[in-house]
Computed example of a mutant assay.
Amino acid sequence: MMKGIHSILVAFTLLALACSLASPFDPDPLQDFCVAIKDKDIKNGGRHPTFKTSIMLMFIILMLIMPKHARNTSNPLGSNVTVVDVDKLLGLNTLGISLSRLNFAPYGLNPPHTHPRGTEILVVVQGTLYVGFVSSNPDNRLFNKILYPGDVFVFPIGLIHFQFNVGKTVAVAFSGLSSQNAGLITLAKAVFGSNPPINPDVLAKAFQLDKDVVKDLQSQLWSG
């Protein structure tokens, strides 16, 4: 029970930390709070929530982050990311924050990806993760670390990063992002799984691969 409460407190602490990293890409609030109107896909406008709505939103977020609610990691990557952004929690509208829960099977991977609109701060609550990000051109320097429960790591906005469970047991982490909708670009899926496909000649030259290898990669079902 105490472990569950601790995880919840950590998650909400991350949200508070993410507030201080709020990105100018999110709309500025024009009032104290402005719950998004989901059916009209309006992020900058909104409405004040009723008490009933507020209770429902709190229930949803608690269900998403409670440790006892395990996530399905039986996929090719062995990972599962539960996102709580403005589309899931309408009350985040204009507040410049969102939250994710990351579950990993043994040796599970959250593959290289970027968040174009948000910096991410991650804390490990269970297991051991190898994490890292790559700086921009021309250096492309890798900053990496093995994290243990209680360790924190920051992934700067827009940079390629990853998390990999290097342990023989499951791992759980929470992350806060400095955007109500930080976005996600999974590199392998975006490059080799685009719709319609990128011309194989382009990718063969860009990645210095045989064209048949590129075609084989494009035929895969990419996760992420």
Rank of each mutant, 00 (worst) to 15 (best):
L184T: 10
L184D: 09
L147M: 13
K189A: 10
K189V: 00
H69N: 13
L15Y: 02
N93V: 01
R47Q: 13
L95R: 11
D201A: 10
F155Q: 01
T53G: 07
A190G: 00
L142C: 02
D210H: 05
N44K: 15
P106E: 04
Q31G: 08
N72T: 03
K145A: 13
F51V: 13
A204F: 00
L109R: 02
M56K: 14
N140F: 15
S136N: 09
P111V: 03
I121L: 15
G224H: 07
L129E: 06
F164P: 00
K3D: 14
N199T: 08
V86R: 03
D39N: 14
D210L: 02
T50Q: 08
L147Y: 11
V124I: 04
I157G: 07
Y130W: 14
D39I: 04
Y148V: 01
L159M: 05
G193H: 09
L57E: 15
W222Q: 00
F143A: 04
F133G: 04
I55V: 11
K3M: 10
G96L: 10
Y107V: 02
M1C: 05
L122V: 11
G118H: 10
I8D: 00
K215R: 13
D151W: 01
Q220V: 03
G4A: 06
Q220G: 01
V152R: 04
F33M: 08
P106T: 03
P106R: 07
H6P: 00
L209K: 05
V134Y: 12
L17D: 12
T53R: 08
P149A: 13
H6F: 12
F155W: 05
K52E: 14
D201E: 15
F164R: 08
Q163N: 07
K189S: 09
Y130C: 02
L142P: 02
I160D: 01
L92G: 08
N144L: 03
D39Y: 11
A204K: 10
L184Y: 00
N137D: 06
L30A: 05
V154W: 11
D32L: 09
I65C: 06
S136L: 05
L95T: 09
I60K: 14
F164K: 05
K52A: 14
N144G: 01
G193W: 05
L90F: 07
V125Q: 04
S194T: 04
T169M: 11
P200N: 07
S219W: 01
Q218K: 04
V152A: 14
Q31C: 14
V172S: 14
V213T: 11
K68G: 11
L64K: 15
K68R: 12
L21A: 15
D28N: 12
Q163M: 12
L129V: 11
G127M: 13
N199L: 12
I55N: 03
P29D: 01
T186E: 08
G224K: 00
L221E: 14
Y107G: 06
V86C: 13
